[in-house]
Design a protein around this nucleic acid. Structure first.
Length: 462
RNA sequence: GGCCCCGUCGUCUAGCGGCCUAGGACGCAGCCCUCUCAAGGCUGAGAUCGCGGGUUCGAAUCCCGCCGGGGCUACCA
């Protein structure tokens, strides 16, 4: 038996917590738990320009909301601390120095302008660009500011991808890339493999955008004398409805906290995310966490990116809402209707349950309970029917069943259909054309309030 | 430009040479139920499997080319 599995996610705190982070985290958690391994959260905050500490908290909050808990991380103890890259700068400096000493990396004094010129020239000559290695072969004199470049050995880089099988890259096409920026911070391409190695990651599960980065990192791992991870897994990207990659900048709707705020259940989002890019090969669509653990495998993950489909998410979320026990649904609904007391929410659940695909919709059905809709104008015949309703409602026990019974009777008496009879009542009580069934609509309101609204509508102040 | 990944109904997908007159799910349409809106039940429309060549008795499934999409190629991650 080999060493136990260790995997990680390494989000960077450069904005809200992203849907893609949740997706990657899910696959990591699934794999870690299947293998009884360890799931690590590392914060890749080496982008001095864009990092903000509050974004780090958003990552914690979002991941915890989804119940994707990590075993080691910046806010926990662990054998490989610290788990925040900005606190590991000495390590990268030391490793970079080691590479320089070994002749495997070198200082580069080129300015951004000079590099840009090199690139332009290459483009002009229609030749694939690779850094000229000027600072390796003929470094300029008298400059102080430098970055560190990796002396790319070239050759063929081969590795195993659990999704796509054996991958082969020609590293001769890769130019010497920067591993330490002139501000002293490591680049992702450097810090990531260093930490993965030092933190003893056995598998690297991440988004497909990193597939082409893998040879860069593998060469570094080799040069540093580390052991390579046993395998990688590059997961299909989540695409926006228009087919473009879901990005933070272009797609603010990929903000995880927004899902929470709209009333998506975390377990439903997880279920949908699991199905995006993976399928069990059966017709099953709804999975408990345990079922996911049992059935998930990298052999069945998709190779192509998948568009995020809100309609399907809504359906799955509705399925989860309907499956929730009434008390549990009431509990989860509370934050969405803070004006209502728990008893009222609980009474609203039975008719409400089948009508929501996300919890925030409860507001549309229930806001008449804490607002006072303006009474509509009624013609004489309608007013007469409303009075008939008031009449039968007056002495009835204020329960949905009883209300329904007497109202049915009144409808019978009136000679018009239920639709014609109930629509004005609905309008008067809620101010809307859509509501819960009329007897529930009435029963949820205190009797005096309901009666007052009906009465007021039949006696307009003049 | 170079390298890499990918390409089946609108969307997510099943399919790994004959069981496919291409199956399922979401969405959509119709009907039933029904006081509105949902939920639920039933029925239906919807994919010449990106295109063109091969291989084969036989291809969505194998091979080649092309086209299309995405990713990487940054002193972003």
């Amino acid at each position: 038996m080999s060493e136990s599995v260790r995997v990680r996610i390494a989000p960077s705190p450069t904005g809200f917590a992203h849907l893609g982070t949740a997706s990657t985290a899910l696959y990591n958690v699934l794999f870690a738990r299947q293998k009884k391994g360890t799931f690590v959260l590392r914060i890749d905050d080496t982008d001095l320009e864009r990092n903000r500490p509050e974004f780090e908290d958003l990552i914690y909050e979002s991941l915890r909301w989804l119940a994707l808990e990590w075993d080691e991380g910046p806010d926990k103890r662990g054998p490989y601390e610290p788990y925040r890259q900005s606190e590991r700068l000495d390590i990268y400096k030391q490793e970079a120095a080691r590479l320089i000493n070994d002749g495997k990396a070198y200082r580069c004094y080129c300015t951004p302008e000079e590099l840009e010129a090199e690139r332009k020239q290459a483009q002009l000559e229609k030749r694939p660009y690779k850094y000229s290695r000027r600072c390796l072969t003929n470094p300029p004199e008298g400059r102080m500011v430098f970055a560190v470049r990796f002396n790319v050995p070239g050759g063929e880089v081969v590795f195993t991808d659990m999704v796509r099988g054996e991958m082969k890259f020609d590293a001769d096409l890769i130019g010497d890339f920067i591993i330490v920026k002139s501000d002293g911070y490591p680049t992702y391409q450097f810090a990531s493999p260093v930490d993965d190695s030092l933190m003893k990651m056995t598998h690297v599960i991440r988004g497909e955008e990193h597939l082409s980065n893998t040879p860069y990192q593998l060469m570094l791992i080799d040069a540093l004398g580390y052991e390579r991870p046993v395998a990688y897994a590059h997961m299909p990207l989540i695409l926006a409805p228009d087919g473009a990659k879901l990005s933070k900048r272009k797609h603010p709707e990929s903000n995880l906290m927004l899902f929470k705020d709209q009333g998506y259940l975390p377990e439903a989002l997880i279920n949908y995310l699991a199905l995006l890019g993976w399928n069990p090969g059966t017709a099953q669509e709804i999975f408990t966490h345990d079922e996911l653990l049992q059935t998930f495998s990298f052999e069945r993950v998709q190779h192509a990116g998948a568009r995020f489909d809100w309609e399907k998410l809504n359906w799955i979320n509705g399925e989860y809402i309907r499956k929730l026990a009434d008390e549990e649904l009431a509990r989860r609904l509370q934050p969405f209707v803070p004006n209502l007391d728990p008893a009222t929410i609980e009474r609203a659940i039975p008719p409400l349950k089948t009508r929501m695909h996300k919890l925030a919709q409860a507001v549309d059905y229930l806001d008449y309970l804490w607002t006072d809709p303006a009474p509509p104008a009624l013609d004489a015949a309608t007013a007469e029917r409303v009075r008939a309703a008031i009449n039968v409602l007056k002495d009835v026990p204020w329960e949905p069943e009883a209300i329904e019974a007497v109202l049915e009777g009144a409808v019978e008496e009136s000679g018009v259909g239920k639709g014609k009879f109930y629509t004005p009542l609905r309008d008067i009580v809620t101010g809307k054309k859509v509501s819960l069934p009329i007897h529930y609509t009435l029963a949820l309101l205190p009797k005096e309030v309901a009666m007052h609204r009906l009465q007021r509508a039949t006696n307009p102040p003049d």
